[in-house]
Design a protein around this nucleic acid. Structure first.
Length: 495
RNA sequence: GGUCACGUGGCCGAGUGGUCAGGCAUGGGUCUGCAAAACCUUCCACGGCGGUUCGAAUCCGCCCGUGACCUCCA
């Protein structure tokens, strides 16, 4: 059973085989730190964290490179160059690097909330200006780039004579010519589909570097080519990003790297789909973003309540990564409840032990083994996390039934129980990266709760329900939920 | 306008040519001093019209609708 992934480049599911056995090189387009991350970004980073985790779970040694884009890009090709970071900095009266640092920190904080693992290398664009300039020089030397007034452009038409430009994004060069919008001041470029490798910086531009073509700043696509080549080599295994980067970003990356390195940069291109809100993509240009800080605090007009990072993570995992995922309060609330039920049952499972006095039911044994076995199968099928969760929920019923319901008189065999525990732990915690959110494990709190529960128990024994209900109700108001279990044991959980 | 996706029950979402996705919500029940939780049960969908097939939500065609990309964007 081997891992199959959907390769955007071939539009097919392919068996994954790394270039170097046992090792995987993966590059994922990271954030532009000129603003705060939002829910849409989170989906991509959670998706590739999942893939990173799963590759490691399969035993690969993974080098996961995710860049930080801290050099400004121009707003619109052909128009007056406008550095996003410089512009915002002016508005906020901050130095560009001050802004970069602020949003980089905030980004890292967000990733931590989601329990995303750190990439193995997180290079910055500003830290690799030299590598980018070297790459541009090579492109000029090979005749695929030209300089005009201190700016350098990539000549797409020439590239397309020898290479399949547009293959990744399914575009035909001639169509592009016809369908590209009318843009102003394109006169510098030989052809409108050419893209900038280096832009000459106007005097007011704050971020600028010395180059063979004068002071300027790098173009939009070159940083990823330069950094992926530097850290992963001329060809690597996986390149990831959002579907909206397919064109022109990844297409251009392929063109640049192919000329510089003589081969297509990545063997497998993986793209996650967007999060939509009210049917529309969540994005800056739609003015419908929900920032992570707003999501966690509930402080946003679209939000009925705050949603925890794990709720979001679970919400993302319930959908296949290549499908759009529609945001709504109903959907998030459903995810929140579902996750709680799943996690409660998981905790229960981990506490279960084989009871030799009870009998083994072959049918249930079989279901546990089949459903748990399918976890691997589904994950290998292009990371079908939704199907794994469905299987888990089927087992949730059984687990709960063992405790109090219809299966009370049965037990699992030692082997099956251990297998189920292993699979649940591996998938929920190791691969999916979910974790317990409430920090209820303070020794003193537990001792206090024990005392309170004991007092309430005495009241109940006296049939003094006024007192027992008062205790429970007031605790509920504090966010501590008491449950009277069937066996007389009282448990509590913290909201 | 071009290219590419998608349209599944109240909501979110898997999915395959011929038994069931799953979650949440809803109705009923069991349990409980009452709650909560849990369990059982209910809800049996696949945009429209044709076609292929013994059989299609799943394949093909047309139509309708929605979205993404073509411009910074995960």
């Amino acid at each position: 059973m081997s891992l199959k992934v959907h390769n955007s480049y071939t539009r097919q599911k392919e068996t994954f085989a790394p270039i170097t056995p046992g090792h995987v090189g993966m590059y994922v387009c990271g954030p532009t730190v000129s603003g705060e991350s939002h829910l849409g970004h989170a989906r991509g980073f959670i998706t590739f964290d999942l893939i990173f985790r799963y590759l490691m779970y399969l035993g690969y040694k993974v080098r996961y490179v995710r860049n930080i884009t801290d050099a400004g890009h121009f707003e619109e090709e052909g128009r007056e160059a406008e550095d996003k970071i410089a512009k915002k900095a002016f508005l906020e009266k901050l130095e560009p690097m001050e802004l970069v640092q602020k949003y980089t920190k905030l980004f890292h904080w967000g990733m931590k909330q989601f329990n995303n693992l750190d990439p193995t290398i997180e290079p910055t664009a500003t830290g690799h200006i030299v590598e980018q300039i070297e790459m541009i020089k090579k492109l000029i030397r090979d005749g695929y780039a030209y300089e005009v007034n201190g700016s350098v452009y990539f000549e797409v038409k020439k590239y397309a004579e020898k290479y399949p430009y547009g293959k990744l994004s399914g575009r035909v060069l001639d169509d592009l010519l016809e369908t590209t919008r009318e843009l102003d001041s394109q006169e510098e470029k030989h052809a409108r589909q050419d893209f900038a490798l280096w832009k000459s910086a106007p005097p007011e531009h704050i971020q600028r570097w010395v180059s063979p073509w004068g002071e300027g700043f790098p173009g939009w696509h070159i940083e990823c080519s330069a950094m992926s080549t530097k850290y992963l080599g001329e060809q690597f295994d996986i390149h990831g990003g959002g579907m909206d980067l397919l064109f022109p970003h990844h297409e251009s990356e392929i063109a640049q790297s192919t000329i510089c390195n003589g081969q297509t940069p990545a063997r497998y291109w993986l793209h996650n789909n967007m999060i939509t809100i009210n049917g529309k993509k969540m994005g800056k240009s739609y003015n419908n973003v929900i920032r992570l800080t707003e999501l966690f605090s509930g402080d946003h007009p679209e939000l009925a309540q705050a949603y925890s990072p794990m709720t979001i993570r679970f919400f993302v995992l319930q959908t296949h990564y290549r499908s759009t995922l529609d945001f709504s309060n109903d959907a998030l609330q459903a995810a929140e409840k579902g996750l709680k039920r799943l996690w409660d049952a998981y905790s229960e499972l981990m506490k279960m032990s084989v009871d030799p006095k009870k009998q083994i039911n072959p049918e249930i044994e079989n279901q546990f083994n089949t459903l748990c076995g399918e976890f691997d199968e589904f994950m290998n099928d292009d990371f079908s996390t939704a199907k794994i969760l469905a299987n888990m929920f089927s087992l949730v019923n059984h687990i709960n039934s063992f405790k109090s319901g219809a299966l009370e008189k049965y037990t699992l065999s030692e082997a099956t129980l251990e297998y189920a525990k292993r699979q649940f732990k591996n998938y929920l915690e190791v691969v999916f990266g979910l974790k317990q959110e409430t920090a209820a494990d303070s020794e003193k709190l537990n001792a206090v709760m024990e005392l309170v529960i004991d007092i309430r128990k005495e009241a109940r024994n006296r049939k003094d329900y006024a007192t027992s209900d008062k205790i429970r109700n007031q605790l509920t108001q504090l966010g501590i939920i008491l449950k009277d279990e069937k066996d007389g044991h009282v448990s509590f959980s913290i909201e």
